[in-house]
Simulated scan of single mutants.
Amino acid sequence: MTEAGTDKAVPEPEDSVPRRLLSVATKLFADKGFDRTSVQEIVVAAGVTKGAMYHYFDSKDDLLSEIYGRVLRAQTEQLERVADGTAPLRDRLRTAAADVVVSSIANLDDTKIFMRSMHQLTPEKQKAVRAERRRYHERFRALVEEGQRSGEFRADQPAELVVDFFFGSVHHLGFWYRSTGALTAREVADHFADLLLNSLRP
């Protein structure tokens, strides 16, 4: 949904049909698994008809891809704001690195569900999601490459490997992070950002 005359997205109300469907689908996919959850179970739990669901989502696949897509879109918007800012490059990269850790932890269930079930999406949807994620990684990598060109970051390590190593750690959060653990999300984010920046120090 967008505001009239603008391209600015307007958040869906908390009780909107799409939000209810996504919330219910997330819980059911987490509890039962994507393949063992039926459309009928989703619409009953959300208190809507199948017609209402199909007005917003073409299929159960669409629900699954949107569970992850909304997180990735929010992360991309934040990254673009940070990357296009006026802060020193090192500060922008540090902020971007910390932000993606915090947002990943805040949406850990959504990400885990998607990663566990992505292979069950149609090839077309898998391709679309991978392309969107690749664009995010490329924007992040551009910050590293900018610093390598200027001499602020070491250039003897390929930027692509540095970024892949960092995001490999981010994607692994779902296997070990617990909100009841010793570190808060912000503390983990600060450590991750420090590790990334230290690895790039000339």
Rank of each mutant, 00 (worst) to 15 (best):
T184M: 07
R139K: 13
A98I: 15
F167I: 01
K127E: 13
E138R: 07
A96G: 11
L79D: 02
D84G: 08
T111N: 11
V170G: 01
I105P: 01
R81H: 11
E152F: 04
R154Q: 00
H171W: 15
R116I: 08
N107P: 10
E66T: 10
S65Y: 01
P123V: 06
R70E: 15
R94E: 02
S169Y: 14
A96M: 07
T180I: 03
L161S: 12
A155E: 09
V170Q: 02
A98C: 14
E66S: 09
R90V: 14
R130P: 00
V82S: 02
D62L: 03
S104W: 02
D62G: 06
S117R: 09
H172T: 06
H171Q: 13
R154A: 00
A185L: 03
A97M: 08
H172M: 08
D84N: 07
V163P: 10
H171M: 13
Q120F: 03
L121K: 00
H172F: 12
R90W: 00
D91M: 13
D91Q: 14
G85K: 11
R73T: 15
R90N: 05
K125D: 03
R149N: 00
M118R: 14
R92M: 03
V101C: 06
D110H: 12
R90Q: 07
D84K: 05
R186T: 11
Y177K: 03
V129E: 06
D62N: 07
L72E: 13
S104A: 13
L143Y: 05
T76Y: 11
P123Y: 07
F166T: 06
L93S: 04
N107L: 05
Y68Q: 14
E138L: 11
A128Y: 06
K112G: 09
T76D: 11
V102H: 04
A106H: 07
K112F: 10
F140S: 00
H171D: 15
A106W: 04
V101D: 01
S65G: 03
D84R: 04
H172Y: 13
F140P: 01
E80V: 09
V102F: 02
D91F: 07
R130G: 10
D156A: 08
L173V: 00
I67H: 06
E146I: 04
R133I: 05
R73E: 15
L63R: 05
G69I: 02
L143P: 01
M115P: 10
D110N: 15
V100C: 04
A131R: 11
A185W: 00
A142W: 02
F175W: 14
T122A: 10
Y136E: 06
D109M: 15
S169R: 13
E160T: 11
L93A: 05
S104M: 07
Q75Y: 10
V71E: 04
A106C: 10
L161G: 12
D109R: 14
R73K: 15
Q120C: 07
V163R: 05
H171P: 08
S65H: 01
F153Y: 04
R135N: 13
T111W: 01
R134G: 14
F165W: 10
R149Y: 00
A128K: 09
M118Y: 10
A128I: 07
H172V: 03
R116S: 10
V129Q: 10
S117N: 15
M115W: 15
A155N: 13
E146G: 02
R133S: 08
L173K: 00
F165T: 13
A97N: 08
Q126F: 06
Q120Y: 04
K112N: 12
E124P: 00
